[in-house]
């Protein structure tokens, strides 16, 4: 490589070889970091997968459909936990998605003076920083007494609907309080990321809609939210991922009963609460069974993310 003539541009020195090597080195460094993340993910899968092999060989697919958890006879199945994981997360999303989207919309519009808005945005994001055990304790201190007080009323009034079809447990613990606490926990994720998606839309979009005679409401619902759809779905999926894997708060609130009930007033359990409770005392095949359920949780999360990606692509094709 010949260097360009020096004399014509005295202010420009040729790039030193150190400079060029730093440039190249930086590319390799970032590549290394990127690969390290993927490597950790694969490593975790392999470790959990190897641990799960004995249980997979013994129980096969039947593990998913069995609701036994019998350490004495070494009979294991994770159906109640799979069910509880999905139901508690769905309850969380049912509450958190509309509220979180509402918060995101409110905070992305200019309803509030900027100074107040900044404070509220900060508070919402702070909500995400609270440790989950604190949420669990808050649930025990606030939600559980409320459930004790009104759970019976709900059952009396709406007991004919299957989802309220059992009397609440005397402890007040159950799927509903667990789902509600999960809703509060994932709310900031949905609100903050959806808001980011909304405020990063080009201002021309709103102007175009308003210029055609759309009201603020019409511009939001018909143009801005669809345009930010991929970001909003991303927010919901991150929230769902957190809800599926959340351990501490759920373990404190769900009641940890190996039980499948259509009623959300009944106690249940989730895969992560099962792992948290059993792993310390487990040995032999039970450890393998727990690894197997962890792998299932992993698979659910992966499936959710793939479905979300497909949904986003489908919508974006228009």
């Amino acid at each position: 490589m010949t260097s360009l003539s020096k004399d014509s541009q005295p202010a420009v020195q040729p790039r030193s070889s150190l400079d060029k090597n730093l440039d190249r080195g930086f590319i390799w460094l970032t590549l290394l970091f990127a690969l390290a993340v993927a490597g950790v993910l694969i490593w975790m899968t392999v470790v959990v997968g190897i641990g799960a092999i004995p249980a997979m060989l013994k129980y096969g697919v039947g593990f998913i459909f069995s609701s036994n958890w019998d350490a004495v006879n070494d009979e294991y199945g994770a159906l109640p936990q799979l069910y509880g994981t999905l139901v508690s997360s769905i309850i969380a999303l049912i509450f958190a998605v509309p509220i979180g989207l509402g918060v995101a919309l409110f905070l992305s519009e200019d309803y509030l003076p900027t100074r107040i808005q900044v404070v509220i945005v900060f508070l919402v994001e702070l909500l995400a920083a609270i440790p989950s055990v604190v949420y669990g304790l808050w649930g025990i201190a606030v939600l559980v007494p409320i459930m004790k007080a009104i759970g019976g009323q709900i059952y009396n009034l709406f007991g004919w609907i299957p989802i309220f079809g059992t009397p609440p447990s005397a402890t007040g613990l159950g799927m509903l309080p667990a789902g509600l606490v999960l809703a509060v926990m994932v709310l900031p994720t949905i609100a903050a990321i959806s808001r980011d998606a909304l405020i990063s839309l080009p201002p021309d979009l709103r102007q175009a809609a308003v210029g055609l005679g759309a009201t603020r409401w019409e511009a939001i619902i018909k143009i801005l939210v669809p345009a930010a759809f991929s970001g909003i779905v991303g927010a919901i999926m991150l929230a769902l991922g957190r809800a599926l894997g959340e351990t501490m708060a759920v373990t404190l609130l769900i009641g940890n009963s190996n039980n499948i009930s259509a009623s959300i007033l009944a106690p249940g359990s989730t895969i992560s609460s099962l792992l948290a409770l059993k792993f310390a005392e487990a040995d032999g095949l039970q450890v393998s069974a727990l690894m197997y359920s962890a792998l299932l949780l992993f698979a659910i999360t992966l499936l959710v993310n793939v479905l979300a990606e497909m949904l986003v692509r489908r919508v974006q094709r228009i």
């Binding site: 080009p202 021309d204 979009l205 102007q207 175009a208 210029g211 055609l212 669809p226 345009a227």
Partner: peptide, 11 residues
């Protein structure tokens, strides 16, 4: 009606 500086079709 209004037409803007940068083309801004809806997505």
């Amino acid at each position: 009606g209004m037409v803007f500086q940068k083309p801004n079709p809806f997505p």
